[in-house]
Design a protein around this nucleic acid. Structure first.
Lengths: 362, 362
DNA sequence: AATGCATGATTAATCGATTAATCATCTTAA
DNA sequence: TTAAGATGATTAATCGATTAATCATGCATT
């Protein structure tokens, strides 16, 4: 009853062709010594019978499942689809499957999620860590996607440089008084982005940063960010750390009767699904997730398939060494540059950027 | 070299306790006949040694992988995160892992994705079909999540009823001239939603439907929906088939200087991440994904774990029979009602709903 | 005391692929 | 002619958990 799979197995093929199952295995894998014409014959009958190798059998023998685990931060992140898709495609191309696990909220869940994946026998993990989280040592190679400045990071977008692109663009339009909008001051990604933005500011430029989480601590979602005051005080450009927040900014301004981009320019990050279809379409910075996924998966698989080092020869391992206790893998390229996507939410700064005494001109 | 897993196996535990590996297996699974105190002892040492069962070994013997496949439609769907998370949680609680595969775009990819998952040995599939797509017969039970009206549907939200809730709410606010905004006329979900909305219209109510895909066929994303004209013609409420489209509507109106909700009310569907944080916050209809996932996964697992019927006794199978050739599983509950979430994007209809001759009042 | 029965544990086969070790031929060189 | 080597295929063990079949022991019944 149990284990009665539908398709044929190697023994069946062997019987049909009239050889041993070992020869079938060798022929299909191309490993041992099998005459070319036998290989041909075996391949043909395997295809004819609709042979599908048993993952369980192979995994048991080789100790490898050909499955990777993908650990994602809290699901509310609208970037999730892009990440998951890119990872799945990259893994699939390399012959691996992707098991998902999400660590909604707390670090505990993240740890549990990782444990579950390990127990399922994944060969490696891709972890997009929850903001500011570190992952403990685990029993398999790990590719970490966070920010270039995070210790243990395998590969990620160059958020810093992305921030620079945004501000450079706004400065070319004549802006000098910025408001940066972040969500969580503990997020590595958000800090990198804001850091990059600040890094290209000139001495005379004004800027201020607000963190949504701190601002609205404990209150329900729908609360004003108080943008009107900032605009009255002379801010002409608002740069958010994500399109989600840029959207919040955009609609709050529009409701207050402030015209975007005529009076205030707005920018976001990540090029989320809704960004091109809102009015005005959001100017944002696009992340090349496909490439990041390819690099992460490649580094992971390289480590997985590398011949395991003997204890006295640690050089063959791809694990990072040094101060970090994490066994995250390294990639040749650790950051992927971002692309500025100019759309309709930015315009030249209004000449009279000086705030009027009473704000009536707004 | 190969297969040298880190942890101990049953034989090791057996050796330590001084029994046979069969007894260990029985003790841990609670299946055979083992004395209570031996069970206790074995459980203890297993925990002590940090025993983790080998999925490969178990899968090979039992023929079951304890992994489900999740096939998702094109990734642009912002609902994706909720679905994936809910499915993962439900599956995880039942002791199953979730392998993802996405069928971006065409039906071919969807078929390939399903094939890949089958080859990986999944025990069952959850398929959220691409709009209007049917899935061919596959070699394992399938739970399909689409709409209650789709043949073969296992469980889904009651989109029709959700649509009714929206219109009832708008009618209570005094609206009688509606514009429905859909994206793709081939989508079962969207048709159900619009169908439900129309079903509660009174004879005197006016309504019109626009399909974004047809409207903007071949043009780049950012194009006007021409909402201003509709508003000038007397439309006071615009009901979109998704929050994504509602957002598009909202920002287009705001840019045109039309006040939401004072002049026009806007509603969406799905309660996406951004819906509570835009201004005005979107009134929408929430989908209880957690419950849908639980039902789908439960139905799937029930079928997987049911003793396979002998060929002459088809009654024990959970497969749908009849005109459909699909082996999708049935659930006791096939639709889950939706919840209206009232926020700020709707207001009472303006008394002078009659269009002014020249539209200047707008 | 002998038989039947319930209980507790063991033996050994099995799932399917992989691979080191071995064997059987045939070729080539001395 | 014979030994060494190359080539092609087979044997059999192995990965780890499961389970049907079997065995051993204790207890109660007649």
């Amino acid at each position: 009853m149990a284990g009665s799979r539908s398709g044929p197995n190697m023994t069946q093929i062997a019987k049909v062709v009239g050889v041993s199952s070992a020869t079938v295995s060798n022929a299909l894998s191309g490993k041992g010594r099998v005459s070319p014409k036998l290989v041909e014959k075996i391949r043909a009958t395997a295809a004819e019978l609709g042979y599908v190798p048993s993952n369980a059998g192979r995994a048991l023998r080789t100790g490898r499942s050909n499955v990777l685990g993908l650990v994602l931060p809290d699901i509310s992140n609208p970037l999730f689809p892009q990440i998951a898709q890119a990872m799945e495609v990259a893994a699939s191309n390399a012959g691996y499957g992707v098991l998902i696990a999400d660590s909604r909220g707390d670090v505990t869940t993240q740890t549990q999620a990782i444990a579950r994946l390990i127990e399922r026998g994944v060969d490696g993990l891709v972890v997009i860590p929850r903001r500011g989280t570190r992952i403990g040592s685990v029993a398999c190679p790990v590719a970490m996607v966070d920010t270039p400045s995070t210790p243990g990071n395998t590969v990620s977008a160059d958020h810093w440089e992305g921030g620079q692109q945004v501000i450079r663009h706004l400065k070319e339009l004549g802006h000098h008084n910025f408001l940066f909008v972040g969500h969580d001051p503990a997020s590595n990604v958000q800090n990198d982005r804001i850091g990059g933005m600040k890094s290209v500011l000139a001495p005379g430029d004004k800027h201020q940063t607000i963190w949504i989480e701190s601002l609205l601590a404990g209150t329900p979602d729908q609360t004003s960010l108080g943008l009107l005051d900032h605009v009255k005080n002379g801010v002409t450009a608002i740069a958010a750390v994500s399109d989600l927040h840029a959207l919040r900014v955009l609609t709050e301004l529009q409701t207050a009767g402030i015209k975007v981009p005529e009076q205030v320019s707005v920018t976001g990050f990540d090029d989320l699904v809704f960004s091109p279809v809102v009015t005005p379409a959001l100017t944002t910075v696009h992340m090349n997730m496909t490439r990041i996924a390819e690099i992460a998966i490649a580094a992971l698989i390289k480590d997985i398939e590398a011949p395991r080092a003997s204890p006295d020869d640690p050089d063959t391992s791809n694990y990072k060494t040094g101060s970090t206790d994490q066994n995250t893998v390294k990639a040749d390229t650790s950051k992927v540059s971002m692309q500025l996507v100019v759309r309709g939410s930015c315009a030249p700064a209004v000449p009279s950027a000086t705030p009027s005494p009473n704000g009536e001109t707004l």
